[in-house]
Each structure stands twice: as structure tokens, then as C-alpha cells.
Design a protein around this nucleic acid. Sequence first.
DNA 1: ACAATGCGTGAGTTTTACTCACACTATAAA
DNA 2: TTTATAGTGTGAGTAAAACTCACGCATTGT
Lengths: 294, 294
Amino acid sequence: MYPNLPPLNAMRAFESAARNVSFTLAAKELFVTHGAVSKQVKILEQYLGVNLFIRQHRKLVLTEEAKPYLAKVQSALQTINSATQELISQPQLAQRIAINVLPSLTINWLIPSLESFKLSNPNLFVDLSIGDFAIDFSQHQYDIAIRSATKKPQGCNVLKLMDEDLCLVCSPQLAKKMTSLQDINKMTLLEHTSRPGLWRFWADDIGITITTDNKFGMEHFYMLSQAAVSSMGVALIPRFFVSQQLADGSLVIPFSAGFVSPYSYYLLTPTASPLPLKVQSFIDWLLPLFAPYR
Amino acid sequence: MYPNLPPLNAMRAFESAARNVSFTLAAKELFVTHGAVSKQVKILEQYLGVNLFIRQHRKLVLTEEAKPYLAKVQSALQTINSATQELISQPQLAQRIAINVLPSLTINWLIPSLESFKLSNPNLFVDLSIGDFAIDFSQHQYDIAIRSATKKPQGCNVLKLMDEDLCLVCSPQLAKKMTSLQDINKMTLLEHTSRPGLWRFWADDIGITITTDNKFGMEHFYMLSQAAVSSMGVALIPRFFVSQQLADGSLVIPFSAGFVSPYSYYLLTPTASPLPLKVQSFIDWLLPLFAPYR
DNA sequence: ACAATGCGTGAGTTTTACTCACACTATAAA
DNA sequence: TTTATAGTGTGAGTAAAACTCACGCATTGT
């Protein structure tokens, strides 16, 4: 029926490579290596018997023949893309997506952002829940989970979002009362109760001594950030969690003495290939938000 | 860039299945098993989160959602198909295809048919040569070869065209002089010199005895067919090779005492995946011509 | 002069696609 | 009613495709 239909995965590589005029950039876009793109394009060229690129020393040039071809291929891919969008946008085909996220990430960041996801995916209903337990997708019916861990989780699809970039924060008022790092011993140290060793690790890392026992423990980072805003003391909080407060000035970084903790943040999905479109849509929305912190 | 682009190989399976409203028919079209199509469609459905078919007991029905989706997908595939056709039809991109075919197949069948290939592939120039030697594509620069053999050739892509269906032929004049199979002992037996045992095998197979030594050897089937037309004697020739003569009455089958020889005809191409489009085009043209004989 | 950038490629691995063989069940035929 | 048949689903195993890795090469920019 379609006797001239080329290998379609190779077409996709060609389209991206041609649009970017670069195999390396196309590779980033497609989440593969540049070698993979190079080979797929070569497969297409050998199938067609036509050169699509002129390989120059360090750059690519589309051949004259490839230009109109690219335009039509893009049109076709766009047709499929929008047809798929329309398909899943039909009200009677509304889908639900169940997401389980770490408490502080939910409170300080996800909930304020979710409205924009809702706007661009009106047909996708989010069931949001909070959790920090170990995820077993055969037990819990979640489509997506976000967790922190010191090593890459096993047994499911994993996408690393960012490392945990801890920074010292306090209210502007409190910051004025400190002139050197040692002054934090005059303050209340707001402590994450699940990470009791954190102040010690931090102090060792940057080479100061903690002499005070004046600590206040709280269960979650978002509680710590609220406490810090209220001038209760200084806290060590992942930068990402307090980006809003740092932006509006309710929290400041008195000394740039952060350190990268051994924890990283991961997005977990049930093992499935390819990832369902609704899950992919959420990831596509989410990833750019993390981009500045990667 | 195309955030909703589904797995494209699965799309192709869906399109064929939807058009045929049958996984089995789609499988035939795509040269795979029905199970493969079934699984690809399921992959697409799980990706989309949308059912595309209602599986009834022994038949398929497209869901209402799938109908407009199918139309757009077909339009996209058609765009790619025709863009590819246009690409390779550009005069400056004319290609050559080197084909090496068995002597009799060339003379009796391929040459008379080639004009129709030329008409539908004006941008593809055929270099035709005759040969019956063993093909080694690393030695010979052919894109396609056709050979006969008693077992499937190794070391290259192989497509079986047909079994060798030998039939007894002679001119209408000679046929009148025979009333029973035993009468062939009164005739000259036209013999293929590369297949000296052929008359013996045939006689054993259908249970008669050859008592005459009146034989005439020739190198190729097309010489035998010419000799038979000229009333020189009776011959055993693959049906496919004398289809023209049987159709126009210059040869007849006096007794339907053919037999299927151990030889089959194979189309050979160099190992390559996917097959270049120019090669695929030739095969697409050629296969229907063999269809009645398969 | 030297590091950095971008593409090509062979070997080896992972992922995807497919086949095979069988199960299931409604029609059609006996 | 029984039996054959045709079409689809599916688990296990295999074949094929796609990708990664690590390196080579040549050019650009500092």
C-alpha cells in the first residue's frame, strides 16, 4: 500500500538532525548518542540511495535534494503529532495520572506549578499524593513517583532529576546578626529529623566546628523553610525547595557555604516501553522546570 | 519538537491492520506473523491509553476514536510515501540496478516483461546480465540475482519465488501423433544437458518406462522450448518458462503428467537491512508476476 | 601548539521486534 | 451435535535492530 515507505525510526533521526543541522544536537533531543543518530541517517541514505547531508569537516549541510524532502517529512510527522494530540484530547477519553511525590517537593514546588500543567493538559486528571516510602510499582498504583536516594533506584524506569544542592538559609533579619560562619553557633540550627547528621556533615565539609546544641528538629524541609522564614534559625535546605523564597527575599543565603549532598532526586515510573503518552506528557512538562538545577 | 509522536513501527502495523480490518491480512501485507501485528497494535494502544480496536470473537471493529485517527495517520504515511517517490524520481538522482538472471528466465520471460518495469520506474536504469553461476555478492556487483537450486542458498538475502513445476510440452502437430504417454518413446526427447537425469526421474515419478534413446541435448530451457515449437520433439520445461507459448498455442501439454522437481527459484540480494529502495521497487514489481505460480 | 568540537565506525550490548506453538472461541460445515 | 476452521491473544525463546562505548580523525578556536 505504501511501497516507498522508508524505515520510520531512521526518518525521525533524519528530521531531527536536519532541523538541528547537527547530529550531536539531534542526539540530545532524542536522548541517544551522536553515533546512534549518525548510523540511523546512514541507514536512511543507503535505503534511499541518496545522500541527504554533505558532511563537512565539523558541520553538516543539507543537500539540495534533502531540503524539500525534509519539509514533507516534517509535515507528515506534524500530522501524526497533532492527530495524536487530538485523539487523546477527546473529552470521553480523559485519562488519570497518579503521582506520588516527596512531601517538601510537593508543598514547596509541585502544587504551585501544577496549574500550568493543567492548562496545557486539560484532559489529564492528576491524582497527587505525598510519600517518601520506597516505591514498589507492583504494590502501588502510581504512574509516576519522585524520590530522593543516595544511589540510583532499581526495579523500575529511572530518570535522574538533579543532585541535592544544599544551601544555608535564614531570614534577612537573622542574616544581619551574623558576620562570619562561626556565628551560626549563636543561632538555632533547624534540623531535618530524618537527616540528623546533616549539620555535622556540612560542618566537616566546609571546615568549621559546631559548638552549639541549640537545635530544633522538624520532619520535612518545607517545615524547615517555614521556620526559617519566621526567623526561628538557620537551616540547610535543598536550593530547589526554597527557590521561591530566595527569589522573593523571604529567605537569604547568609554565606555561600552550600555543599552537594550524596542524595539525588529521581523520577520513577513503572517498567514499560514505550512510556505511556500521558506519563511522557507529564515528564515533558516537568523536565524543563528542573533544567536550571541539573 | 514532536512531543506526541508514537512508536512509528507500531503506527505502521496499526494502519495496515485498520485498513484491512484484520491482523492476519495486515500480517501478510507486512510479511510478518499475525502475532507480531497483534503485539505492535497493543503497544500503540498502551502508549496512547486508548483502545483502537474492539476485538470481537473473530473479527475486528475500529473504535469510533480510531477512525479519524486512522485517516490522519494514512495521510501522513502517504505524504512520506509520495515525498520519497518524488525524491528518487529526480532526474539528477537516477540510479542503476544490476540484475543477473538465469538464461531461460531472461529470454523467455524477463525481457518481454521489462518494459512495464521501465514504464513505472523511469528513473531506474536496469543493467541486465545472464548467468547461472553461483553468486557471491562480495565478488559480483549485482543488486539482484535469480537462481535455481535444490535448497535455499546461504550467505545472502533469499526470497523464494516458486517451485519448479515441470510439464511435458510439444507442438500441437506432434501432440496429434500421440494417444498415450507411452507414445513419447516414438518421439525425440529434447533434453537439458545440465539435467541429464531429468527424463528418467520424470518417468520413474509417473510410472512409465522410457525405451527410446532418441534424445537431443540442448544447453538451456529456452532452446528446448524453441525446438519444441519447431516440432523437433517433446520436452520437459518449467511451466513458467513456456507460459507465453502455452497461451498462444504454439506449445501444448499433450498429457498432464508434470511433476514438481526438487529445484526451486530464488531471488537473491546482498545482505543489507533494510533493502535499498531501488531493489525493493524491483521486487515489488516482480513478485506479482510470480504470484500465479507460487 | 594544543585543547575542544563534531562526526565516523567497529565491537559488544541492550532493547525491540518477531516467530513459534499453543490456547481460546465463535462461526461454518458435516 | 460434533468437528473443522478461521481469527486473535499470549508466553517463551530467538532474531534483528538500535544503541553505547571507546576510539580515530580532522578542523576550529585559543
